[in-house]
C-alpha cells in the first residue's frame, strides 16, 4: 500500500508541486517591477552579469582565508550531492526510465561511497558551523535547519536503499525525496535556482558602473 502511494499519487503530487512551485517563485521575481536604470552605463551590464555568475563560484581572495570552512564544506557537499544525484547507478536508471529515455555511465560502487562520504561530511560540517558560529547562529532561520535535516534524511535513506535488497527501504527513500521536492520551492533550498537572478541583477548593476563583482 505504502509503496503504491509513494510510486503513484505521492510522486505525482510531489512532481507537480516541485515544478509548479519553482515556476511560481521564478515568475514572482520576473513579473515584479524592476526600475529602469536611467543612468548612462560605463560598461556593459550584460558582461557584468555573466562575469558575476562565473566569479560567484569562487571566493574573493580578500576573504578566502576567513571563510575557508564554509567554502570547502560547501563545495564538498554540493559536488558530492551532484555526483550522487546524477551518477549513482539507481538514479541513472530511474532518470533514463522516467525522464530522459536514455542513460549514461553510472559511477562505480566505490565512487558512490566516496561521493556520499564527502557529501555527508560537507553537510554535517556546514550544519555544525551554522549552529556553533555566533554569526550563522544569529541569522539562520528555522527553514535552514529543516532543509538540512531533510537533505540529510534523503541522503541517509538513499544509502540504506542502495543495495535495493529491500523494497520498503527503497520506497522510504523515495518518500523522503518526495517530501523534499514538496518543501523545496517554499524554502531556502530555492537558492539552488535563485542564485542566478541574484548574481545577474547585482552583476549587471556593478557591471554598468565598471566594477567587477
Amino acid at each position: 500500500m505504502f509503496e503504491q502511494l509513494v510510486n503513484g499519487i505521492f510522486w505525482d503530487i510531489a512532481l507537480i508541486v516541485f515544478f509548479a512551485g519553482i515556476a511560481w517563485r521564478v515568475l514572482t521575481v520576473l513579473r515584479r517591477r524592476n526600475h529602469h536604470d536611467f543612468s548612462q552605463p560605463r560598461n556593459s551590464g550584460l558582461i557584468g552579469a555573466v562575469m558575476a555568475n562565473i566569479h560567484g563560484f569562487f571566493p574573493r581572495r580578500e576573504v578566502a582565508s576567513r571563510v575557508r570552512l564554509q567554502v570547502i564544506a560547501g563545495y564538498m557537499f554540493h559536488l558530492g550531492l551532484f555526483a550522487l544525484l546524477f551518477f549513482a547507478a539507481p538514479h541513472v536508471t530511474f532518470i533514463a526510465k522516467h525522464i530522459t529515455g536514455f542513460s549514461w555511465t553510472a559511477m562505480p560502487y566505490w565512487a558512490f561511497i566516496v561521493a556520499s562520504e564527502i557529501a555527508f561530511a560537507g553537510l554535517i560540517l556546514l550544519w555544525v558551523h551554522r549552529v556553533l558560529n555566533p554569526v550563522t547562529r544569529l541569522i539562520s532561520r528555522r527553514s535552514d535547519h529543516i532543509a538540512t535535516i531533510l537533505v540529510f534524511v534523503v541522503m541517509l535513506t538513499g544509502c540504506m536503499a542502495l543495495g535495493e535488497s529491500s523494497a520498503e527501504l527503497k520506497a522510504f527513500h523515495r518518500f523522503t525525496v518526495e517530501l523534499l521536492m514538496i518543501y523545496f520551492p517554499f524554502s531556502a533550498l530555492m537558492h539552488a535556482i535563485m542564485f542566478v537572478p541574484s548574481r545577474t541583477y547585482s552583476g549587471a548593476f556593478f557591471g554598468r558602473r565598471g566594477v567587477n563583482m
Binding site: R25, T28, V29, L30, R32, R33, N34, H35, P59, R60, E62, V63, R66, V67, Q70, G74, R130, N133, P134, V135, T136, R137, L138, I139, S140, R141, D144, A188, M190, H191, M194, F195, P197, S198, Y201, S202
Partner: peptide, 30 residues
C-alpha cells in the same frame, strides 16, 4: 522589487558577508 525578491530567495544565511564588514571584523558582534 525584483532584486529584493531574488536576494531574499537566494540567501542561505552562510554568514560570509560578516567577514567583509569592518563593523563585524573589528567588534566581533554578530
Amino acid at each position: 522589487d525584483a532584486r529584493v525578491e531574488s536576494y531574499f530567495s537566494s540567501c542561505t544565511h552562510c554568514g560570509v558577508c560578516a567577514e567583509a564588514c569592518l563593523f563585524y571584523t573589528e567588534t566581533h558582534d554578530p
